[in-house]
Design a protein around this nucleic acid. Structure first.
Lengths: 407, 407
DNA sequence: AGCATTTGTTGGTTGAATAAACTTATCCCT
DNA sequence: AGGGATAAGTTTATTCAACCAACAAATGCT
């Protein structure tokens, strides 16, 4: 797409703006209005909402219609004088946006269209700790091919694929650098996957699991007007993502949000990373289960059902305090006023919140003027799949022009 | 200015793009090329560099010339066939961009033009701990008025003013929330200053001292191609700023970068903020001087000259280790690969770096693939003054249209 | 002196958005 | 039932920033 930002904050390479860029911008704006509307807007609604004239909106809408990105509903008489409006909606089954995930105990796929509807969804359980990449990616390729085949047969084009992995990933396409819990190290997952599937006409991107889960959460919080927050994702490890103005901040390489190795106590237990007293040793899943005296393999539910025992209460309190400390550092550093608890922390939120809040109140400098809100994630079931697919949609909405020009 | 970002990352209010926005974008791009060029470019150079046609660049350059933002130099025959090029430069003495600062022990002003040349500069020493805002701001207003009067008489228009303060500041114009070392609390500094000076025709903005110092550093690092880093500023307190793609990331309210109260040890000393074991208690200026057994009022130089004593060596080592720990948390969280040491840390860098590096190596997850560079700040003498003035320039370059329309 | 070469300008063309008039489809009131 | 008010969507001419191509200006080279 034409990168063309008038604010030019910083040294992003600047490209000239020509009339095509102008149309592209407005086309994206109109599609965005249609995709993210509470109720289907008419051309006139969009005109009023954006400031473009009705004529311009009409022309842009025609282009989106021709590209198969939007559809018209039957005019609805609105109990009001005047010609009834034609509601515009994102085209149902107009394209496939695919979210994939390789995780420690499952492979998953979710296919959605521009309406946000799930067209297909599959999760395969398994144990992928310490596996070889090739067979796992082969299995994932089969899962992908098998899932999209019937939809392709229906004539629905593939827009793109986002793959979530539990590890450090270079921005978008770069190799997977490290996935400690899979035991993978410097694997070019995207190349392996495209080779195994033969997909060449649609892009395949890669991102960290927490990053994409945060993306899903951002989408689900958008209607409530909350656009900036820090997302902590508790699993075996602890990940996170910074969400600002509705989008995830990737950092220099795409590795931002790593909160799991924040120092909690220099005399604390040894961590897998080699340092002492990391957050993960207080609030990671293993630490929680061990502290509560439960088997490591049990699901989180076990903590909730034993929440009235001393050992579990103790483990949760200690995790809450440690999380609160690390989050206080984070809030001071990046200045957000909301923290979202995802992964295993979502169901545990009621037990963790008091400890987290106590630490935030004590350590966040700006607390007196702007208290920090802590809340459980809304998007929970395989959030990274949804987030990945939604990120693909975001690329389309950002540049509808590239998509419509396929035809 | 027209906010008009085609990437529309997130929920920034989107405005329609019209032809005026287009011209504004290109006008800013041309001015940016001229202001940030290594050597004065010709219209043809800009055309080749941006992709705009020579005709378009000519038209835009004419507009900038008319607005007094740029000037032409005498054509230079370039030892080469063809008509000699007319070099374009930012207009010397074409406008005043003012940086102001209120700090614990001085008030300062620096006036620069678009070439980056200093037109005027003054610093008044004093002791402003625990003072009343009104008289201090009165003194600052006098300093401002006295400094710009001769330049105004020369006919140089005032473009804007950025005021740096050592405290928590709401974005751009909001009140100063808290400046612990001045003893100020919720002071509407901008209103007081504009009332005291009667300036109404040019904007007055407010920002944190470390934020603006980081801005100056970003400008001075730009030629070397380094655009993303974390800036730590050591003073009595410890501030910081996140710089991404050449610009400072403000956070939700403009309070980001507060690294001073990162937890170093839960059993550490009590901090002024009420919590235990904050970084400031290990690496703040008072902690350093106290640890070295020196008088708190002495300048940093005292640490360097006693660096071979056990107590000073010990204090510096402890500060370096603590800084390293806090910076490791930071690097993991925001994914930058460079840390810049500013304020008192700039001269102390050689003594602090070993400890910082040791901690970074141990605690930064991505270190094996992307080692973190630690370096002393280039822009040191009253960096916030320079940064403030440069930020004013940035606003002009971002929106030359608003400026040229004054005429 | 004449030609190649590069810079900067001029005049006509393109294309996206605008403005204003027009058509279509409804409600409402008599 | 029919006319007026109202709103949605479309058509047509206009505006304006950038493009294109040709041209004028100023230099070096042979």
């Amino acid at each position: 797409m034409t990168e063309f930002s008038p604010t030019r904050a910083g040294r992003t390479p600047i490209t000239p703006a020509r009339q095509a860029s102008l149309r592209e911008h407005n086309l994206g704006m109109v599609l965005d209005r249609i995709v993210n509307a509470v109720s289907p807007p008419s051309r006139a609604d969009i005109s009023a909402g954006t400031g473009l004239t009705r004529a311009t909106v009409s022309a842009l809408a025609d282009r989106l219609l021709a590209g198969g990105l939007i559809a018209e509903l039957a005019p609805v008489s609105s109990q009001r004088a005047g010609r009834p409006a034609v509601p515009l909606v994102p085209a149902p089954r107009g394209l496939m946006a695919v979210g994939l995930e390789i995780n420690v105990d499952y492979l998953g796929i979710r296919v959605i269209d521009l309406t946000g509807a799930t067209l297909a969804e599959k999760v395969i359980s398994g144990d992928f700790r310490s596996t070889e990449p090739a067979p796992v990616i082969g299995a994932l390729a089969d899962l992908l091919a098998g899932t999209i085949a019937p939809l392709s047969a229906e004539g629905i084009p593939l827009a793109g694929t986002y793959l979530a992995v539990p590890g450090l990933v270079d921005r978008k396409t770069g190799p997977l650098r490290l996935a400690p819990n899979l035991g993978w190290d410097s694997v070019d997952v995207v190349r392996l996957l495209t080779e195994a599937t033969g997909i060449t006409d649609a892009p395949v991107w890669l991102a960290n699991e927490a990053t994409l889960a945060a993306r899903a959460e951002a989408e689900s919080l958008r209607p409530s007007g909350l656009h900036s927050f820090f997302y902590v994702s508790g699993e075996i490890g602890i990940g996170g993502a910074i969400v600002t103005e509705g989008s995830v901040v990737p950092g220099r390489h795409g590795w931002s949000g790593e909160i799991g190795h924040t120092l909690i106590d220099p005399r604390g237990p040894l961590c897998g990373c080699g340092a002492l007293g990391c957050l993960e040793q207080y609030a990671g899943k293993d630490a929680l289960m061990r502290g509560a005296g439960l088997d490591l393999e049990l699901p989180v539910q076990a903590l909730i059902s034993t929440a009235d025992t001393d050992s579990t209460r103790q483990a949760l309190a200690s995790a809450g305090k440690a999380l609160g400390t690390a989050l206080a550092n984070t809030v001071n550093l990046i200045d957000v006023d909301t923290v979202v608890l995802g992964g295993i922390y979502a169901p545990l939120a009621p037990f963790l919140e008091p400890g987290i809040h106590r630490e935030l109140r004590a350590r966040v400098l700006s607390y007196p003027w702007s208290p920090v809100t802590v809340q459980a994630a809304r998007a929970t079931d395989y959030a990274a799949l949804t987030g990945g697919a939604m990120t693909v949609l975001g690329e389309i909405v950002r540049d509808p022009n590239g998509w419509t020009q396929r035809f």
